[in-house]
């Protein structure tokens, strides 16, 4: 066991918070803001006698922008300081287990006690090396000894790994393929059909490969197809792409083939002949791009830690 890990592990079983108190009593404004954010329209959370959505439990206990939560233990601060000093400065939550015993109602003052349940050895993760910290919290309301909820929470404190900087490159749009990208912007997949020999073609070209005719008409294709071939890219890193990722050649139902990334599945879950369907996404939050998503059970994917 490393020196550092020995020092981290010594905090197991120590309190993370003792008789801590939520900054605001349960209130209808925070309930409404939450419901609007996540689109929760359950009638129990609206109106004068609203109860808080159970899943927003942490909204009542997080310190928020003001920080300085009363009741947070010295032990937790020391543990985080040790991790910071060792370079594990970034944090991401990985697991949340909650049990709700009674509803939180407007006016309830949330109190909680929390213990550092475990600290993992250093693990390699996609984000970088780090330690998983698990806390267990008991939530009550002031003046009531019965539990309102329990909450086990696991975070990863990690040292950020370097990655290729920059944004995903934009497609090169020219005179010969502008129609295709205009279609994609409308979330339509367009091939070309020769006006003379009627052959369907993709990618877009100014002339027909069959008869040489320059006359053609856009032809919308369904976007359903099968993986004809694919590669899994691990290296080199490219801006805007998170390896490993799949570049597939998809044979569309209409017969033409199209390149694209496969989405919604681990690279190991992709196989030749897999049925896929086009899905339009905006990876930079800007331009629509066509991706292919497997058709069938969602269980093709596996957890990526």
């Amino acid at each position: 066991m490393s020196d550092l890990y020995e020092r981290l592990k010594a905090y197991e079983g120590h309190p993370a918070a003792v008789s801590a108190r939520g900054k605001d009593p349960v209130n209808t404004a925070m309930i409404r803001h939450w419901c609007e954010a996540v689109g929760d329209t359950h009638p129990a959370h609206a109106g004068e006698d609203a109860v808080a959505p159970p899943a927003m439990l942490q909204a009542w206990t997080l310190a928020g922008l003001g920080g300085g939560q009363a009741g947070r233990s010295a032990a937790l601060g020391e543990l985080f300081a040790l991790l910071d000093a060792a370079g594990f400065t970034a944090v991401v939550a990985t697991d949340c287990e909650q049990e709700y015993f009674r509803p939180l109602r407007p006016g309830d003052v949330v109190t909680y006690d929390s213990v550092i349940e475990s600290v993992s050895p250093c693990k390699a993760t996609k984000l970088g090396a780090g330690h998983f910290i698990t806390t267990r919290t008991e939530v009550r309301t002031a003046g009531v000894s019965a539990l309102a909820a329990t909450h086990r929470f696991r975070i990863l404190r990690y040292a950020p790994a370097a990655r290729a900087a920059g944004r995903r490159p934009k497609p090169v749009v020219g005179r010969d393929n502008a129609g295709f990208w205009a279609g994609v912007a409308r979330r339509e997949l367009l091939a070309q059909r020769c006006d003379d020999c009627r052959e369907l073609r993709f990618p877009w070209l100014p002339g027909c490969g069959g008869c040489g005719s320059p006359r053609w008409t856009e032809a919308r294709v369904s976007g359903a197809g099968t993986v004809y071939s694919y590669v899994v890219v691990h290296h080199p890193p490219a801006p805007g792409f998170e390896p490993p990722y799949v570049v597939a050649l998809v044979e569309l139902a209409e017969g033409v083939r199209m390149l694209g990334n496969v989405t919604g599945v681990e690279p190991g879950g992709v196989h030749i002949g897999m049925r896929v369907r086009v899905e339009f996404q905006r990876p930079d939050g800007e331009q629509e791009l066509p991706f292919f998503r497997p058709v069938g059970p969602a269980d093709d994917g596996r957890v990526r830690a």
Binding site: A37, H42, P53, P54, A55, C96, E97, Y100, V303, A305
Partner: peptide, 27 residues
């Protein structure tokens, strides 16, 4: 957590109350 809870209570309707949730995040 909120989206998952809402997905389940939306499906079962206004009588549905969340009792337990255990989630693990990946990608």
């Amino acid at each position: 957590n909120g989206l998952v809870g809402r997905y389940v209570t939306d499906h079962f309707g206004s009588g549905a109350v969340l009792r337990k949730m255990a989630i693990r995040l990946g990608a």
